[in-house]
Write a protein that binds this DNA or RNA. Structure first.
Lengths: 148, 148
DNA sequence: AACGAAATTGAAATTCATTTTCAATATGGT
DNA sequence: ACCATATTGAAAATGAATTTCAATTTCGTT
């Protein structure tokens, strides 16, 4: 389950700074995890990785920082069809919209970018007088390997 | 938040029967709720309504029956952008795919049907060799009334 | 209509992710 | 360095959903 190409060291940090949000030791660790993540991570995975950078980080701080980044529109939250329980997964926001396919058997996540998704968003905005903030298209099914 | 037009009294019941699944007093109550629901309901709302039909229904039975219907592909589970906590919402399956827009301020749910959604599903299937079982497109934003 | 294997149920306990609380500590502008 | 304010950690609380297991119910067979 690869994440979008672009890694951006320091990007989240500078975004928060320019918005006047305090940077702490703990936040810096979590931000760097999110910036370099190659997978969709859940809170406990982020905690584990963050503790390798800074052993003194609590679970709640991870949740609070993820909440902050979500509110700031810097990361997106995914459910990935709840294939592995009710946990949430996170990915940094790239300008480009994409959908997530999750294999119901092996849990593999495939990302896919399509202009149809953009088109759907604009259609919805105009036809339903609804101003779109986030669109999440999640698909469950079977990947090439897992089709029987 | 209106649900698709078609009400189908006895539809779920007969589907389960023809698949050799036992009907119980409790299941009948829950099925009739799901068949006639005009809103997206969560487990506790379904429990409350089911108890009006049959006072002796437990919470677990609701969860178990919803699980059964989900596995049988007779209902769909929605998150509705988690605007009201982490609970899940349920709707009976209609043949027609549609997306859900949830207002982040007032919680209103708008449904929208589009051939783009179908097209997106087939594109994904062919281009990614992924066999689609369920597609869930959920949109968060602001409805006409709540745009500031 | 009764029998009985197999499925279903309820009640309590449990799980698991996430949130709240609040006192102690750290941040960054002055 | 000061200090108002924001952030943190630890523990407790929440809340949805699941597991467990003995008691009950269903429905095909007799």
């Amino acid at each position: 389950m690869p994440l979008p190409e672009t890694e951006s060291p320091g990007f989240l940090q500078s975004k928060l700074m320019e918005r006047g949000i305090r940077l702490t030791r703990q936040r810096r660790a979590i931000l760097s995890i999110m910036e370099t993540a190659k997978q969709h991570l859940d809170a406990s995975q982020i905690l584990r990785k963050a503790r390798k950078i800074d052993a003194e980080i609590d679970r709640v701080t991870v949740y609070r920082t993820l909440g902050l980044l979500k509110r700031q529109g810097l990361i997106d939250e995914l459910d990935l069809m709840h294939v592995q329980g009710e946990r949430h997964f996170y990915e940094r926001r790239t300008g480009r919209d994409h959908l997530h396919m999750t294999c119901l058997r092996c849990g593999k996540v495939i990302e896919f970018e399509s202009h149809l998704l953009e088109k759907l968003k604009t259609t919805v905005s105009t036809e339903c007088s609804f101003s779109v903030v986030i669109a999440r298209l999640e698909i469950g099914g079977y990947c090439q390997n897992c089709r029987t």
